[in-house]
Design a protein around this nucleic acid. Structure first.
Lengths: 213, 213
DNA sequence: CACGTGTTTGAACGGCGGGTCAAGCGCTGG
DNA sequence: CCAGCGCTTGACCCGCCGTTCAAACACGTG
């Protein structure tokens, strides 16, 4: 069944990273064992250490890998939409934990929190995080710029500032939602994001903006 | 020197919690050993387990304990100020990591992130976190209400909504700052918070609002 | 000054889990 | 068909750390 030729090495790498990301999402970084990852990947524990120098590096790589994937997925989807306002709405849709589909509430945001806690003490991780976050913000910057170009947004403030505010608002709200806070439901988060976006960017909220697509 | 009478039991409890919080802030939850806590508290490792059933419970208690302290400290300070706008400004001052004094950048927010990561899988912690967060938000609600009463804030929106937006914006920005993100400086965070607060609550920004007190 | 009770110690135990390694396996090229 | 080389296995080793425990200690009390 399996073909142990060199060309499959890259697949194994990704398979293991993928398995690791899944385990971390389920169990949390602290409770993730090499044997868990091996089990999820359908290989023996020894093989994990054959492909990665240490558990620590594997976990760090897995975290950035997963967040990378999420970014690629969303940015590809958003690029398709013609209207900046729709792009923004879609971005918010995708950012609200459990708004579009139920992940059992533990989704990408759970991984983000793990990234943060590691980045506090791990310089490597800190650097990766900054790059990831920069990209996340610049995605919003682009939307803001586009919307201003087309006249959809009327604010004249610095797009970088506007994007920072929106990005961080989304972060902060997503934390509450992913924690299952009874006072901060996905719907409430969505409303709050759209409302602030409308205020800050300068556009009118339609009733259609408040419904899941 | 030490008096091992029953009445000192409560002191020991707090001493240990305090030591634990300090160690967690320094080393991170994952790297915190019982012996580290013992060392910081100036006692033997065995004693830690005499006062707490297990390491896990001690850590959980320490996290809520530290956040509790922070809340009490800030709320006491804020209550003194007569103007709602000053209260808000002070709240933001205190929320920006490293804005007023340098903690070596690892401050209360680092503990918050540890709380979050634990709360994802620990029901007990999740409950405590929700209470803590609710209190944090209601602190802002009170300021909003007060400011509207006095006419300092002109917004007519639901104070709960306004407070949620501000609280989460602060959370999200504080994460970036505590991570030492080169693009998100304490000053920039402070400005962003004040700006959004002014927009959302409805007040004019004075130049004095943008300077550290 | 003994006795008892509530504290404190630090050595010892035990399990867990990351990392190593020698041995197998299966492909490919000669 | 054989040799060689990457891939894969799983048993083993070893250090670490949470937890236990018996012994010492300090103090108040009678």
């Amino acid at each position: 069944m399996s073909a142990p030729t060199p060309k499959h090495t890259k697949d194994r790498h990704q398979e293991i990273l993928d398995a690791a990301a899944r385990v971390i999402t389920e169990r949390g970084l602290a409770e993730t064992r090499i044997s868990d990852i091996a089990e999820h990947a359908g290989v023996s524990p020894g093989l994990i250490l054959y492909y990665f120098d240490s558990k620590d590096r594997l976990l760090a790589e897995a975290l950035t890998f997963a967040n990378d994937q999420f970014y690629l997925r969303t940015s590809r989807e958003i690029r398709r939409l013609p209207s900046a306002k729709d792009q923004l709405r879609r971005l918010i849709d995708l950012s609200v934990p459990g708004y579009l589909q139920e992940f059992g509430r533990l989704d990408e945001w759970a991984l983000w929190i793990e990234v943060w806690v590691r980045a506090l003490r791990d310089a490597e991780m800190a650097k990766d995080r900054e790059v990831l976050d920069e990209r996340w913000r610049s995605q919003i910057v682009e939307i803001v710029r586009a919307g201003r170009q087309t006249g959809e947004f009327t604010s004249t403030e610095d797009p970088d500032e506007l994007a920072l505010r929106l990005a961080c608002l989304i972060d902060g709200l997503a934390i509450q939602v992913v924690m299952n806070d009874s006072k901060v439901t996905p719907e409430r988060m969505h409303r709050a994001c759209m409302q602030v976006a409308a205020n800050e960017l300068g556009f009118r909220l339609e009733s259609s903006d408040l419904v899941a697509s």
